[in-house]
Amino acid sequence: MGMKVAIAVLAAGRSTRMGSFNKLLSRFGEVPLVQLSITQAIAAGRGPVFLVTGHMADEIREAISGFPVTIVHNSEYASGLSSSIRTALRVIPDDCAGVLIHLADMPLVTEIDIAAISDAFICNEGGVVVRATACGKPGNPVVLPRSLFSELSLLEGDTGARGLIAASEIPVIDVEIGRAASYDVDTPEALEAAGGFRPSR
């Protein structure tokens, strides 16, 4: 295998708009959403997969038990998204040229999407940022090169890397994956529309 891209699946959030229910434990068929996200990341086969836990960490860990994934806990998850990115960066192996950040609440992102985004990064020898787009608008996942890791580790609050990407001089490659790049299940309505449901027990 040539250049590797680590995949960090972020599953630490509190899903506050779902009330007391953690959306990552919602079901798509018989599969919890977090397991679906992990499965797609593993199937893409572009590098090691990491899961960042936070809220309800034990339940999330149980939902992906037995999968070849390294779990890393973000004890500062309540401070927002940036803390999960920082947590992931601390465990990315030295032989990975970058990290693909995949939000675990995006059920329409497939292994094909993850592979295509990773391959665009690999084809450009790891010297670019690659982001998924939905009808031309930036979305997720996004691949961040190792050259940005030190700056990414300084992010704070409930913010991703978008501002940092815009401020850097690193070229950005967009990969169009359609609606999947912008569709998350933040509300019960969005969950239902995506084909998911809240288990009765």
Rank of each mutant, 00 (worst) to 15 (best):
S37K: 08
G19W: 13
G29E: 15
S26M: 03
G13D: 13
E30I: 11
V52C: 00
V9G: 10
K23R: 15
M1P: 12
T53D: 07
S37R: 06
G45P: 09
F21P: 00
L24R: 00
L25K: 02
T39D: 14
R27Q: 14
V5K: 06
A11C: 11
L33G: 02
M3R: 14
P48K: 07
S26G: 14
M1L: 02
H55T: 08
K4C: 01
A12C: 04
A11Q: 03
V31L: 05
L51I: 04
R14Y: 10
Q40E: 15
T16M: 07
F21H: 13
A6N: 07
F28M: 03
R17I: 05
G47M: 09
E30C: 07
I42S: 05
N22E: 01
A44F: 09
I38T: 14
G45C: 10
L36D: 11
I7N: 08
T53A: 09
S26P: 12
M1F: 04
V52S: 00
A11R: 03
A6K: 02
V5L: 07
M1Q: 03
A43P: 01
L33I: 15
T39P: 01
K23M: 11
S37Q: 11
A8C: 09
L33F: 07
H55Q: 07
R14W: 02
H55R: 06
S26D: 12
P32Y: 04
K23S: 15
P32L: 07
L36Y: 04
G47K: 10
A6Y: 04
R46Y: 06
V52Y: 00
S37P: 00
G29L: 05
V5E: 09
I7T: 15
M1T: 13
L25H: 05
F28Q: 05
G45I: 12
I7W: 01
G45S: 10
I38S: 11
A41K: 03
T16W: 02
V31I: 14
Q40Y: 05
G13N: 14
V52T: 06
R14V: 12
Q40V: 04
A12K: 02
F21V: 05
L24I: 09
G29N: 12
T53M: 04
L33P: 00
G29A: 13
I38W: 01
V5F: 02
G54T: 11
A11T: 10
G47H: 10
G29K: 10
G13Y: 01
